[in-house]
Design a protein around this nucleic acid. Structure first.
Lengths: 345, 345
DNA sequence: TTGAAAGCGTTACCAA
DNA sequence: TTGGTAACGCTTTCAA
């Protein structure tokens, strides 16, 4: 562990207080109102050019920065879009999605803020978010929000609450990321390739159930009414766990496995190969997420390509909802899943 | 692309305004002051039990949530720690670090907020952050902040500004993540293993220069004064790019390569093997980041394990700095780099 | 063209 | 034990 040494530290220097618009006004020799007019380019009022310059100069000299809280308090609203920061490690897909979304909302003049609510849950979290009076709340992932929470947020002025995950919540717009579709895709693919005894990896790591269980369910649904069987395979993201699973592979008597995602798939495929199981001859393997790295294995890893909604579309949904808060909550299925067939299946 | 259809949407229902402490007071039949006392458990004042209950009930009935902006305006300070959200895709290391940091700061009663400043740069960004009057600002990555920015932030009341990246900035605390050390580590290792013609992969992707260049420099430094040569190898994170590089491998006449990180290393190693280059016999390969997936390749990928500071330590640094804003900025090197020797080098 | 003043939601001081 | 009131920094209406 990298330690940061603790220093007792000497003592302070400039506790000079932060400049307000009143300070700027004083320095420029005008009233606070004038300062506000100048700095906000208020078009309803015309201020003489010399005055403008004096104000600007004063502001720069003092290093004046307006106080967002005071402003939004006065205005009665803000343009803050709040997202709880995800508490689980996110992949490149999601990272990029967030980035894109922030950019798109920024273009619509919203400010995106990810709120770190680690260790705070349910309605308590919703309350904490509501204290910031965001104009919209965007909740990724499952479970962190109930109908209660939606009510709290709306009561406190949130004009749009959007969930982005496996379930939809009463009163909130929902972008349904239906992970069953991923499993369904994988299941159908394996079935079509003639596989009948199908294993489904379920990660043992916490926080992933809300993705893994629907994916498993999707496989079940795809195979329902056929002669194929589905076997649940708990697996931790460690080599030993994979080795243990591989060791009892013959006994399991499976001819295919959907491994939750590409990372677990790579882990398991390696363990299988090390254990003498031929892929895809003895067992077909398919992952999900379409990571670049999956293409590097031999055989190349088949996968389910997942498409998230574009940040732009989501930003537009948010904007629409904010402008028309009374509208009935929309629910959209927004998870595109398509098989990318390579060599492992 | 997953499209979200656009709905014209019906019209509003309950534009009921958000309840304030005055509403609670009215409903409970007490003054606003009393409400404040009760809800904040003010110990200096004793409120009768029946009154407390009435207040609590009124608050619950109205769904009252205090207004953070008003509170911090009144208080003159907040406990918000602001971090600009990273604009580049982050790996699991960094994700986990953020998570840990949020948790640790949460325990110290700070609120962590990641501010999405996509497309806003330099001092403009600093101004935007300053508007929120955070008590501390934590800037990851390089370049997004200059000494000007630090001044703006401090003037606007930030009691601690901490950078977390390759360079340190005047006036701010710095957690120096010295990526040269990573390169140095890798370079020394390869040299010790008898390699003398060493390639260093430099990703072509934008936004990575501030990591890749120091890593390259570190290799140079490790090899300085020896008979070893260093060759810079631009590489995009795509199979074709890797294939192209592999195609001219013999011509390059290298006996080792440090591939920036494990992902690029895996990409390149595969391309080399496909091109008939034996690893490690003809060319040794080493990556960095110690990803699990590197262990799955054959040969197992050697890597530089990188250790970030613990979130707890950083949280403590922030807390210390906030409590003692006058203290001289601390600068710590906080990047632990150690070689994990496996089979590819 | 500029200034005075009210008010946004809280909290803390001082009276009652 | 409780209530009135001022103040935080800003914007905006109204008046000069």
């Amino acid at each position: 562990m990298v330690q940061i040494p603790k220093t007792p530290a000497p003592s302070s220097s400039t506790p000079r207080s932060v400049p307000t618009s009143a300070d700027v006004a004083r320095l420029a020799g005008v009233s606070r109102a004038t300062v506000s007019y100048v700095l906000n380019n208020t078009s309803a009022v015309r201020i003489s050019e010399p005055t403008r310059r004096r104000v600007h100069e004063a502001a720069k000299e003092l290093g004046y920065v307006p106080h967002a809280a005071a402003r939004s308090l006065r205005a009665g609203h803000s343009r803050m879009v709040l997202m709880p920061a995800p508490s689980f490690p996110v992949g490149p897909l999601y990272s990029q999605f967030i980035s894109e979304l922030q950019w798109a909302l920024g273009r619509l003049d919203y400010t995106v803020v990810q709120y770190g609510s680690v260790g705070v849950h349910g309605d308590e979290a919703a309350r904490a978010w509501a204290e910031l009076r965001p104009v919209a709340v965007l909740v990724p992932g499952p479970g962190s929000l109930g109908p209660q929470g939606v009510t709290v947020l709306k009561r406190s002025g949130a004009r749009a609450v959007v969930t982005l995950g496996p379930d939809s919540v009463d009163g909130a717009h929902a972008l349904l990321m239906d992970h069953e579709a991923v499993g369904h895709c994988a299941g159908s693919h394996l079935f079509d390739r003639g596989r009948r005894r199908i294993g489904v990896v379920v990660p043992e790591e916490d926080g992933l159930e809300s993705f893994s269980l629907p994916r498993l369910e999707g496989v079940r649904r795809a195979l329902h009414g056929t002669d194929a069987t589905v076997t649940e395979l708990p697996l931790a993201y460690e080599e030993e766990s994979a080795a243990r699973l591989a060791a009892r592979w013959r006994a399991l008597d499976l001819d295919a496995v959907f491994a939750y995602n590409d990372e677990y798939a790579m882990l398991l495929m390696r363990a299988l190969q090390d254990g003498g199981v031929r892929v895809p001859e003895d067992t077909a393997v398919i992952g999900a997420d379409d990571l670049m790295l999956g293409r590097l294995l031999r055989p190349r890893l088949s996968t389910v390509h997942i498409e998230l909604p574009s940040g732009r579309d989501l930003a537009e949904l948010v904007d629409r909802a904010v402008r028309n808060p009374g509208a009935a909550p929309e629910t959209h299925k927004v998870l595109g899943a398509t098989v990318v067939h390579r060599d492992s299946s």
